[in-house]
Design a protein around this nucleic acid. Structure first.
Lengths: 334, 334
DNA sequence: CAAGTAAATGAAAGCGTATTCATTGTTTCA
DNA sequence: TGAAACAATGAATACGCTTTCATTTACTTG
């Protein structure tokens, strides 16, 4: 690899001048600049990232922390994140917590030693993780959820739950149910919004199928829990709100296997509007989170922080909307 | 961040000795070692990656090059890759080509300047990409396909096509069809295996629905092409082989919308055994590629190369097997 | 035209580590 | 007991870059 030293020799200038040219420092005579650029190009010069980092400038490295990747919800965001970051000249260091806070701590150490310029993260826990991120003293952008004292890009899960209920209400469903975790942070907020809307309108929460938080995307626990519920109770709901699209798929399977037709007998609506909801047949209605935009905005927010254009901490909430598909239909007959 | 210098001061030894202890160099007196380790721990020492890199040792950085991430096929592999790499103490630098060879060239430059120890890649083109990888002079492991002159971890797509045909044959399907690209490298190999098996057994290739190669996972082009075909021709096949699981989903939708029941009227089988095939209802039969294993083995192969334990170039082909699900059923009546 | 100022560049230090080479202290063996 | 071999450590250098400070050159102005 060609170094600045070689360029300096060829161009008959000092290495300092080469550095100035290549880092866009203004005080260089145009002719000198041209000459240096000529040789840089000719030698296919690539700045050594380690040397740059060591010399104190930025690394153009962004640490990314996700719970897992195989989940389409996450991978779609990651896709957008990668695209935006690379467009802006940043490389991405990808790490998964698998929802373990110990793993998260280790990752933070790793990222620190690599001198990342900033971190974009889906933290393990909005409560417990905060202190470790604080201790880093690095720019952090939290996505898909909020964390006290940190910049974040997310959606209102409470409002999301409301919109789901509203959607079902507008289609004429009166008895509705919920499938998902009840005591987990994000899920319970969705559920709360859902319940609050129900309470304020002429609706009834007829079934609550509480599931554990699945460890991985391959987990069948939502399917199994739903199946067991259907074996034990007779379903009273006309429509079910599944906490996310993965759950929605599992619920549809459990329902179908028990002889319910979707949406004929029971409607189902998911959350996230991830790939699964789109590709399923019948396609699954869902609350759309702008996944691509979340990734993109996270990167742009990070850049603003790095450029000092944004100093105060703020949470951005992006818009959501219900995408109505095959799994929910109007029950209102003329 | 604490540096070796600080540890050296506290432990009253030279920085060189600290370096020796921390990099496991043997010639240090046990007491000295203990003392240094004590202080390293106490100061929560984290080695500076840039300095290490610059001083000539390895970076523990692995470059990863994928076409896209949002596709479940890729994201499942990525998940395994990340897990294995981190377990082995490596960080992952993630990049997407979006199937552009120019983008791929740029990525290679980026990775080079970051001094990655090696690259694990799904190259854009097995023919055109090779030269750029060669020029890097870095360890490279190709995955999910083969590239002349490079180490690779993949499956036999030809044999995969054969196995699909064999599966359909064993279930009693005689007239079968294919949906997918016809002139793209990997796809056409699958198709060839499929055709060859058909030719050698009492089967007939009744429909070929040629689709373009979709640009992204969100593309509806496979669905549209299938729909158009169904509008123009009457389907003669009893079973369709879809080039991958995403296509299989689209085919099922198109068929269902045209009034065909799956698998009642037409069976469908996919390729990859990705998340989509598992989560769909009815679930989709598919040829299972060991996605997790591909990721894991790629990392382990890379480590063997880096340790000099593997010097000659070789292609590893992992086992595949047909996963029979709801979308294919036996037509043989007793 | 001298003196002072601005523009352009070079020399050198420093970032944190690995590593070579030199040095010190300790042991071994003739 | 003296020299040689060895074990343990320190001093110093290099890696490629950014940045400060000093120097040179060119230009302005009274």
């Amino acid at each position: 690899m060609a170094s600045m030293k070689e360029i300096a020799q060829k161009a008959k200038v000092s290495q300092a001048t080469v550095s100035r040219v290549l880092s866009g420092h203004p005080v260089v005579k145009p002719e000198t600049r041209q000459n240096v650029l000529y040789w840089a190009k000719k030698l296919n010069y690539q700045p050594n990232a380690a040397a740059r980092s060591l010399a104190g400038s930025s690394t153009n490295l962004l640490g990314i922390i996700f719970p897992e990747i195989a989940n389409p919800f996450f991978s779609e965001i990651l896709d957008a994140l990668e695209e935006a970051a690379n467009f802006e000249g940043y490389q991405i260091l990808l790490n998964c917590t698998h929802k373990s806070i110990d793993r998260e701590k280790n990752i933070l150490n790793e990222l620190k030693r690599h001198n990342v310029d900033g971190i974009i993260t889906i933290p393990v826990s909005s409560d417990d993780s905060a202190q470790y991120y604080k201790a880093l003293n690095l720019p952090v952008v939290v996505i898909t959820k909020q964390m006290e004292g940190f910049n974040s890009i997310s959606v209102s899960h409470y409002q999301g739950g409301q919109k789901i209920a509203q959607h079902l209400h507008s289609l004429g469903y009166q008895k509705v149910g919920y499938v998902g975790p009840v005591n987990q942070s994000t899920s319970s907020i969705k559920f709360q919004g859902f319940r609050d809307f129900i309470a304020e309108h002429d609706m009834e929460l007829s079934d609550v199928i509480e599931t554990p938080v699945p460890a991985t995307i391959d987990s069948l626990v939502m399917y199994q829990t739903t199946k067991e519920y259907l074996n034990s109770y007779s379903l009273r709901s006309q429509a079910l709100f599944a906490n996310d699209d993965v759950t929605a798929c599992d619920v549809i399977r459990a329902l179908s296997e028990k002889g319910y037709s979707v949406p004929g007998d029971v409607a189902v609506i998911g959350f996230d509007n991830s790939l699964l909801a789109k590709k399923m047949y019948p396609s699954v209605s869902s609350l759309s989170q702008p996944l691509h935009e979340i990734g993109q905005q996270a990167v742009h927010l990070m850049l603003r922080i790095l450029n000092g254009e944004q100093t105060e901490v703020s949470s951005y909430l992006l818009d959501t909307r219900v995408i109505s598909r095959d799994s929910t239909v109007s029950t209102i007959t003329a």
